[in-house]
Amino acid sequence: MTVTEAAPKPPAPVRRTGDVVFSGLARAAGITILVALAGVAVFLTIEGFPAVTAPASAMGGKSGIVLYVWPLLFGTLLAALLAMIIATPLAIGVALVISHFAPRKLSRTLGYLIDLLAAVPSVVYGLWGINFLAPRMVGLYEWLEENLGFLPFFTGPASSTGRTILTASLVLAVMALPIITAITREIFAQTPVLHQEAALALGATRWEMIRMTVFPYGRSGMVSATMLGLGRALGETMAVAMVLSATGVISFNLISSTNPSTIAANIALQFGEASGLKVNVLIFSGLVLFVVTFIVNFLGRAIAGRGYKGESR
């Protein structure tokens, strides 16, 4: 037996050069992304840190970094949440039309058109928001003030330019629509035919079938798609900077001419003239945005990754 054990070492496993090169490239690409992300985080932390002790003069008269960032963060979250409230039902409706209602040819065209929305540069959305959407919203805002003025959201006085946070949110909603639609329609289309047929064979109408099978199956997908759309809306800069007439207040009044600004728009508008500690202050607000966006995206991915537990439970 010892003789066989002393046999020559087995030859090294066969490795194809192509595989080795490709796995190396893929790994390098993955590592690059991690390094870039870490680099951004480190940069933001180091450059933003001096802002913690910055004097009021560097922060537009605010006596502390929290007082400076909080209104911006509030505006960012408000605009993004409003955008999601508008975009999510719309996106899910469009996704359902594409995956379950429209004839195949039409649904493919519709899918392309929605994807095309994602390709429009945000500056163009900004221009569209200022020149097209905002003036047309004025009438609606006046109507809202008159008829729903008792709600804190519509107390007015209605903006005469229409460049309110609600208009900005509408623009954001259009911008976030493609990503939410794309993800939800993929999930909806993956609903097992078996379950859909089970519902139909029981005498479910199309809508009942969707409620019984498509929505339960796609629930986590819908949540994560919304989170990713929220991530997009949180970080959007140009369109908001252009559309929103910001005064930096904290207010739930959605239709007046005094609006909270957003972090990204504030950076874009202030950075040109900023110097010294003012730059650090802006970078610190960028760090806050980075963290918030990161958390939202992380949650979205985590929920998407948890996926469809039904089968395994």
Partner: peptide
């Protein structure tokens, strides 16, 4: 379909 029920090849309870 409400008066003609159907059972499929693979069991398909709603998960």
């Amino acid at each position: 379909r409400r008066s003609v029920g159907m059972v499929f090849q693979r069991p398909n309870p709603f998960p």
